[in-house]
């Protein structure tokens, strides 16, 4: 279910590395399912530098508000305005159209500290899902 071409965090974010070493970041299927219908998304402005596991932004669903953490440190270089305008696309397509930000990582090798898809699935099972 979770695509194998990317990395996962224990806070249910995914990271996809591009050829140019920049990273797409989004939330996982599990996260969107747990949050329910998203209504608002708050992301930092382009140029913001975020620490690893620092707060990247917030997503707010009908039920609750959750912080989104940055799985890896770096500088925000692009925001998915479509997701900010229409947060429901994050529910509909969390691994595709519903990406959140593009990041220029400070240390690309930090990616190795994140989980693979199969490790993430084992992690989800340990949560009882």
């Amino acid at each position: 279910m979770n695509p194998e071409d990317r990395y996962y965090s224990t806070e249910h974010e995914w990271v996809l590395a591009n050829e140019d070493k920049t990273l797409y970041i989004g939330i996982t299927e599990y996260a969107q399912e747990e949050l329910g219908d998203l209504v608002f998304v708050e992301m930092p402005t382009v140029g913001t530098v975020v620490e690893s596991m620092g707060k990247l932004g917030e997503v707010e669903s009908v039920k609750s508000v959750s912080d989104i953490y940055c799985p890896i440190s770096g500088k925000v270089i692009e925001i998915n305005q479509e997701a900010v305008q229409s947060p429901e696309i994050i529910n509909e397509d969390p691994y595709g159209k519903g990406w959140l930000v593009r990041l220029d990582p400070s240390n690309p090798e930090d990616l190795n500290q994140l989980m693979s898809a199969s490790e993430y699935e084992t992690f989800l099972e340990s949560l009882g899902h």
Binding site: G36, D37, V39, V62, K63, N91
Partner: peptide
């Protein structure tokens, strides 16, 4: 609390 989704 929900089936298909709260908003729908």
């Amino acid at each position: 609390i929900q089936f298909s989704g709260i908003l729908s």
